Computed example of a mutant assay.
Amino acid sequence: MNRTTACAATAGVAVPQQPSAPARRRAAGRPAPVVRDLRDRAGRSPHALLFGPRDLVVVTGLPGSGKSTLMRRAVPGHRVDSQDARDRWAARLPRRLPYALYRPLVRLAHYAGLRRVLRTGEGAVVHDCGTQAWVRAWLAHEARRRGGTLHLLLLDVAPGTAREGQRERGRGVSRYAFRRHRRASARLLDAVERGEPPAGCGSAVLLDRAAADALRRIVFTG
């Protein structure tokens, strides 16, 4: 059975549905997106998120918010993380070579890998930097084409915490790039909190650091 919304559970308890999008979206003849807020749950965060077998999941948030860490820990199946492509290229090149010089190659490798995974028709979790809206549009189109749904996982982490996460991992972005990410993330968070995920998203899940740390599995069932 295809699931059209994310289902999160801990100890067999489903997470209550949160307020969804405004009525004007329902009037358009399409199901209203579902927004689930898992922040500030005082240790009652779910340990698993379950999606349909042909669904696609986008994980977004500030650089250093823990997207790559979450994906490596919780995704046993297909995951496409741009950080993996960056690490592979960095291992081949001199350490002193600035990332900006080979960033186009990293992006090309990342999108080529994403295309290969999408061609399998199976569920996948994809890293999203938050500043490339066309990527979400691509994934939304692909999800509809295969009869699945696009879902958004948004890590809501304070900028200072995200910066600390970058330092801990020895990875950083420029102040200019971080400001761009911060503005894009703030706009996205504001829209999701209003019950209006990006166009094409069937659901959105809001996670704070505690909820992300509690999450152990992101799986596709069917």
Rank of each mutant, 00 (worst) to 15 (best):
L97D: 09
P98V: 15
Y99W: 03
A100Y: 06
A100E: 14
Y102M: 08
Y102T: 11
Y102G: 03
Y102R: 13
R103Y: 10
R103G: 02
P104H: 02
P104N: 01
P104Q: 02
L105R: 15
L105W: 13
V106A: 04
V106L: 02
A109P: 04
A109C: 03
Y111Q: 08
Y111E: 07
Y111T: 02
A112R: 05
A112Y: 06
G113Y: 03
G113T: 07
R115G: 06
R115S: 08
R115W: 12
R116H: 10
V117F: 02
V117C: 05
V117S: 09
L118V: 03
L118F: 09
T120N: 08
V126N: 05
H127V: 13
H127M: 09
C129H: 13
T131F: 06
T131V: 13
T131G: 03
Q132S: 09
A133R: 14
A133C: 07
R136G: 06
R136T: 08
A137G: 13
W138A: 11
W138D: 15
H141G: 14
H141N: 11
R144L: 04
R144N: 04
R144W: 04
R144T: 01
R145I: 01
R145E: 06
R146Q: 08
G147W: 12
G148F: 08
T149C: 00
T149K: 00
T149W: 00
L150Y: 00
H151K: 14
L152V: 01
L153R: 00
L155S: 03
D156G: 05
D156A: 05
V157K: 12
A158L: 09
P159K: 12
P159V: 07
G160V: 00
G160E: 13
T161W: 12
T161K: 08
T161P: 02
E164L: 06
Q166V: 13
Q166N: 07
R167K: 02
E168K: 14
E168T: 13
E168Y: 12
R169Y: 03
V173R: 14
V173T: 03
S174E: 14
S174L: 09
R175T: 11
R175C: 05
Y176C: 13
Y176T: 15
A177W: 01
A177R: 10
A177H: 07
A177N: 09
A177Q: 07
F178I: 13
R179D: 15
R179I: 15
R179C: 14
H181E: 06
R183I: 07
